[in-house]
């Protein structure tokens, strides 16, 4: 049995966060017919829907980036757990050591649809994003970044054991 030494309560950021959270609570639900009023609402037509219904890595990348040629690269770093504590919430983050990254995607090969999420990264934004995804079962997770129309990636096996007790 693994026993960690001196895990202190809560995460160090939690307290700061609780104070900060109050600032950002005023969000409005805007129904479609009022959408014109919300100038900032994103344009749904830009959604690459085709990329989200593919069942293979190659087809997903082709639909998303227009190419399925991808090179494994040590310049793409990914942080994903070895064993997911719950498949419904798996923290995944990537960090690319590259300039002029324009896009990125996270793929889970054994999910019903391979694509989990994708990003368009404008100049000035760092190619490092953390998010939480669902994994249906133990799977290879791939982080892909797009640089000058070419794709680089890194991958990791994440074990998913669904359990109820704890």
């Amino acid at each position: 049995m693994e026993q960690i030494n001196g895990l202190t309560r809560g995460s160090p950021k939690r307290r700061d966060f609780l104070v900060a959270a109050a600032a950002g609570t005023a969000a409005a639900l805007v129904l479609p017919r009022f959408a014109s009023a919300a100038a900032a609402a994103p344009n749904a037509s830009t959604y690459p829907a085709k990329a989200f219904i593919q069942k293979t890595e190659a087809a997903t990348l082709q639909a998303m980036f227009g190419t399925s040629t991808v090179t494994a690269s040590p310049d793409v770093k990914m942080d994903a757990p070895d064993i997911a504590e719950n498949g419904a919430v798996v923290p995944i983050s990537f960090d690319a050591n590259a300039k002029n990254v324009t896009g990125a995607a996270i793929l889970a090969i054994d999910n019903p649809f391979v694509m989990a999420c994708a990003y368009k990264i404008p100049a000035g934004t760092n190619p490092a994003i953390s998010s939480r995804v669902k994994l249906a079962k133990t799977t290879q997770v791939i982080s892909v970044v797009e640089v000058g129309g070419k794709l680089m990636s890194t991958s990791k096996q994440v074990k998913v054991t669904l359990g109820g007790c704890g």
Partner: peptide, 16 residues
Amino acid sequence: LTGYWGPAVSKNPFIK
């Protein structure tokens, strides 16, 4: 940043 999310993003999504 523009994010394109699918059904495999967790409930109550978090992004950093």
